[in-house]
Design a protein around this nucleic acid. Sequence first.
DNA 1: AATCGTTTCAAACAAGTGTTTAAATAGGGA
DNA 2: TCCCTATTTAAACACTTGTTTGAAACGATT
Lengths: 211, 211
Amino acid sequence: MPPYDTKTRILDGAEKLFAREGFHNTSLRAITSLAEANLASVNYHFGSKDALLQAVIERRLLPLNQIRETKIREVLARASEENTPPTADSLLCAFIEPTLEFSNSSPGAKDFISLVGRSLSDPDETVRNCFLTLVLPTFQLLFKGLCDALPQLSPTILLTRLQFIMGTMSHVMCMGTLSALNNPALPPPLDQNTLIQQLLKYALAGLEAPE
Amino acid sequence: MPPYDTKTRILDGAEKLFAREGFHNTSLRAITSLAEANLASVNYHFGSKDALLQAVIERRLLPLNQIRETKIREVLARASEENTPPTADSLLCAFIEPTLEFSNSSPGAKDFISLVGRSLSDPDETVRNCFLTLVLPTFQLLFKGLCDALPQLSPTILLTRLQFIMGTMSHVMCMGTLSALNNPALPPPLDQNTLIQQLLKYALAGLEAPE
DNA sequence: AATCGTTTCAAACAAGTGTTTAAATAGGGA
DNA sequence: TCCCTATTTAAACACTTGTTTGAAACGATT
């Protein structure tokens, strides 16, 4: 592991372990030993374990959110150009697709996605807030777009359903690293791409259901 | 707290803390101090911290699953009586409604529901398996019923969507104790009952979407 | 070659962890 | 009353935790 610089090595190791073992169940010693770094280097480079978590999340979530926001704004711009409301389908797609495509972009990304998926309902407020504050702006942008796309639904219902979708997404995001629901009596799981397509179809149908 | 017996007091305290702070972030000392019991009593009554978690989950999940199974079997029996396939709506209802009604049944139940919601994607295999093995039989019963209810959908798609629903459910279950997504720019959240109705409508629409 | 700030390192720190022990205390039945 | 079992208790156990320390090693600049 040690060719690249210590700080990155620690980030990679922490990402992997936080995702697979959980934040509180991961010790700095486990991280530094995986990263082949000295124990004290975490506090030297990041200040504390909490700050390390924040750095792990921000490193990937900031660029990911930027992609999502750009895509959503493109959809909104195209719609306003054609003087029609945006479609719920295209908005949802702009939000969901980058997330799961992202998990194929680099080896550590899958772990990261799983970490993010879990942090939405993490009992630790530090973890949850660290994630929520980063996603909230994008979430609000999506919500406002959907209000225009589906004016027949009240904002309250729309928000509720959007939260349902977030729940579905985090679950799917976690499934990547979790031991699957493998049982001989059940059919085998789908591959990543079909899974995204199915997720989109499911979420869209649930979102557009009559009130 | 101390009127009733120590074992129950420990279960109640553990349930509350496991749900709110997470399993690994909760110490036995915190539990026993909340339960006004001696530290050693946990190991005396339950053997270990892991076994305590198992006891906490089993205490409520076993009866809850029994309710769910009974309701599902009732739906199946009624359908076979009338010689028609069961409806996806009634099956889903039999599975979902008891879960969230349960959270109003006793003060600790809301914590428990939140704990269960999280354990579906808990990084710790001990936690996850403890939960999965208890729910799997009910889950399979539901799955087989849905295969009859929606024969136009392939079992693989059906299973995938059922997992989406599980994700939505766990998220909703967690939301009870989590600091809500409260933002002045967003509408306020729904009350518990309307939330269940909405969840059912959302899940049913997503489940029945054309393949 | 000497000096600088930056980074690494082994060691120790105090605090907290789950678990075990053995003694003390109960409380009912013979 | 005495005895036996079940429970509670305080204390200690061995171990892990995040963090801090001060000296060592490094690497570029002068």
